[in-house]
């Protein structure tokens, strides 16, 4: 009995806390996006080389950052779940995965849209795009694994191990893809322009990055809240079936 009380206590506190901060996160997301998109679309000059196409970067780069950020969140939450057997951490990891996969898809799609005018084709085996593509497979593998078990707890634990293994692997994959790219890529193809660190570019980029972070936090909170409620419903249904 004490055991089940303990399991209820934590999610309940989380529900209260998340209820309080959620409006702030959601509001902040909207404000940051309004400012960021204005700066990105109207408040910054076109690039002297890329023209208006440079504006895609203001979505692409933050999305790619958050694709990695969400995976790191997933790995950290998985580590907490494995070491301390914390149920909420499992839910955080599982809830972060589809959001991260979404950011990865956005990064890939904007990368392709950017590539069409720049490279004359939607897909080039550019080192960064390729790494992001592998990251998408890591996400999809994780999501497939956690859903492949009849017992959700088994799926959660298997997923946590995979998330950690994948996280260790991400830099290795990145390094190997860069290595592969320098071996095979003729140097003439232009890469994604490194931000020139000019304030006119940096400001919208940073605001957009903050907007994406807030969006991630908001979506994550929402998903974890839903998952917590679902889990409590399951527990209650089981308890009713037993009594």
């Amino acid at each position: 009995m004490t055991g089940s009380l303990h399991r209820f206590a934590n999610p309940a506190r989380f529900q209260r806390l998340s209820q309080a901060v959620l409006p702030w996160f959601a509001g902040g997301t909207v404000i940051a996006f309004v400012i960021g998109l204005y700066l990105a679309l109207f408040g910054s000059p076109p690039d002297y080389q890329q023209g208006e196409t440079v504006r895609i970067m203001y979505v692409h780069v933050p999305a790619a950052w958050m694709a990695l950020g969400a995976y790191t969140t997933m790995a950290l939450a998985s580590a907490v779940a494995l070491i301390w057997r914390h149920r909420l951490a499992d839910l955080v990891a599982q809830s972060a995965a589809p959001i991260g996969a979404g950011f990865t898809v956005i990064a890939l799609a904007t990368g392709m849209l950017w590539g069409q005018p720049m490279w004359g084709t939607f897909w080039v085996w550019d080192a960064r795009l390729t790494s992001v593509l592998v990251l998408l497979f890591l996400y999809l593998g994780y999501i497939a694994l956690i859903n492949a078990f009849d017992d959700p707890e088994r799926g959660a634990r298997a997923g946590a191990i995979l998330a950690l293994v994948g996280w260790i692997n991400v830099p290795i994959v990145k390094f190997s893809v860069d290595w592969w790219n320098t071996l095979h890529q003729p140097a003439s193809i232009s890469r994604f322009a490194k931000p020139a660190l000019h304030p006119s570019i940096m400001t919208p980029l940073l605001v957009m990055a903050i907007a994406f972070m807030l969006l991630f936090a908001t979506l994550l909170l929402l998903r974890v809240r839903t998952a917590t409620v679902e889990q409590r419903l399951r527990t209650l249904a089981m308890a009713r079936a037993r009594s």
């Binding site: 089940s4 707890e153 527990t235």
Partner: peptide, 10 residues
Amino acid sequence: LVGGRSGHTL
């Protein structure tokens, strides 16, 4: 000793 399966005490 408290035993259970899938988070439910048996």
